[in-house]
């Protein structure tokens, strides 16, 4: 997994690519929570996520919960087919704001 971060005013987009798995999800978790800690509304671009497992999903859930606590917006955009399948498996496709 790699990631890039783009900031535009009070909104930050984190672009995740590759496999968000047990090896890489701690890195994803850190960048997502750091962004929320900075008071930024967060958009996670998942168009290039090839694979995500429960550890990756857990990182997104943590970021969602942290955003809610701070009254910040959290959304997922351009979710890839493999990632959407896993969200549906976890019944999270309606919990996340998917655009």
């Amino acid at each position: 997994m790699n990631y890039s971060v783009t900031q535009n005013g009070d909104r930050t987009t984190v672009f995740l690519t590759g496999d968000v798995d047990l090896e890489r999800s701690p890195e994803a978790r850190k960048v997502l929570l750091d962004t929320v800690d900075q008071g930024q509304n967060l958009v996670v671009d998942m168009s290039e996520v090839n694979y995500i497992d429960s550890s990756g999903v857990a990182s997104l859930v943590e970021a969602l919960q942290a955003s809610k606590k701070r009254n910040l917006n959290f959304s997922l955009t351009d979710v890839s087919e493999p990632a959407l399948k896993v969200f549906k498996l976890a019944r999270l496709e309606k919990v996340f704001d998917i655009r």
């Binding site: 857990a58 859930v61 976890a90």
Partner: peptide, 15 residues
């Protein structure tokens, strides 16, 4: 309630 953990076992049993 929504929790970050516990999904792996659920995935295994569903899949």
């Amino acid at each position: 309630e929504l929790k970050p953990g516990g999904l792996g076992t659920m995935f295994m049993n569903k899949l």
